[in-house]
Design a binder for these strands. Structure first.
Lengths: 121, 121, 121, 121
DNA sequence: GTGGTCTAGACCACG
DNA sequence: GTGGTCTAGACCACC
């Protein structure tokens, strides 16, 4: 009925993630304009405050920039995207290896697990 | 006051995780007694209520059982350890593949990343 | 200080029971908002933490769902009410029959007892 | 492995219940000697303190009497048994009807439920 | 405003 | 000694 956000991760970060991923997959390009806070709030069925927070967070990270009176845009600097992708990838990878190691799995078992999971799951 | 818990994950769950990992690595065995709530609170430098919550949660999951007036013990059933390991492994794996896929990586790139990371890191 | 909770059953479960009964009797409907933790605490004259625990427990059982920053609501799925009624009824019934059997009463005597009691009482 | 007491009801009361039920079913008669605290503790695989508490509780209720140096005996007064049975029966019945009424069941549905339960269950 | 976590300190029943 | 409940009061992130 309402929106479809779950998991314990805050909604404003889940929305930021969605934008990150679209960026990384080149569905969004540097210079592209994002929907207005209000518009985005309607699309995602979320409180405008929450979108505002999403945009602020992304601006803080240098992913987007707001131009007064014009709206919010993906940062022009192209590096940003690859930097971002690299950083996210490395973070995810690091967390994964750390946890799996704590579970006592070897590198081979991790690789094996991924293969099984991406096929079976 | 100066304990070392971080991340946004609640402390009571982080402590549960620590115990899970010790179980999975066979440092704890079925039937073993856990420190009393108060003792554990001292060791981890958190409030006894927080440990109480950790223990309740673990009991709810069937990992642990309490014997009235005697303490809290790792559940006797041997299966639970393997179940736990499987569940934790699957969760980690699932999260990893999901995030990497959203970042646009293929299965091969994931495997490659792990190999690089475990050697270089 | 002067609330009216008795029995050895924990207060937080007694409050959950009250809500369950209101649900089963259709005084509460799926989607209805429950009073906030603080408000409910005032109404029932118990500590907010105790209500928090009630709400957590009910969420764990799927009776209730919390929407971040908005409050706690009766789960939308209509089935849960009937499931709940069935479960509660069965539990009560089971306990009754078990105890009466242990007291050496036959099914006929139980039925007889109920008839007498509901008329006389 | 250990003893087989469950449910949240205290062990000392569960043991008292067992004795009550044997009394009500005439398996124990007024004047019969109960096992010593120590003996009973061994039989039930429970701490002697717990049995002591059981016996104290039963003495408080007038069900048993202790004769110094001889042991613990079922109270001689025969009425005790029937009184007890009546009281227990009424209590159970009262609780049952109260709860079922709160669940919105009619007398007929209660009777029906018992019939179903004692056949099907 | 909302729910969620945490601390501090108390009390209780149980074994 | 053990775990379990409760209160008081605080702080937090989120909407």
């Amino acid at each position: 009925m309402d929106n479809h956000f779950q998991s314990s991760k805050p909604i404003y970060l889940q929305i930021a993630d969605q934008i990150f991923y679209r960026l990384v997959r080149k569905e969004l390009l540097p210079g592209d304009k994002l929907p207005s806070v209000r518009e985005m709030a309607i699309q995602t069925k979320v409180n405008p405050n929450t979108i505002q927070r999403t945009y602020s967070e992304m601006e803080r990270l240098g992913i987007v920039e707001t131009r007064r009176g014009q709206g919010t845009f993906i940062a022009e600097k192209a590096e940003i995207v690859d930097e971002l992708k690299d950083r996210l990838t490395r973070e995810v990878l690091e967390g994964f290896v750390k946890q799996m190691t704590e579970l006592g799995l070897t590198k081979e078992e991790m690789v094996e697990g991924i293969k099984e999971f991406t096929e079976g799951g």
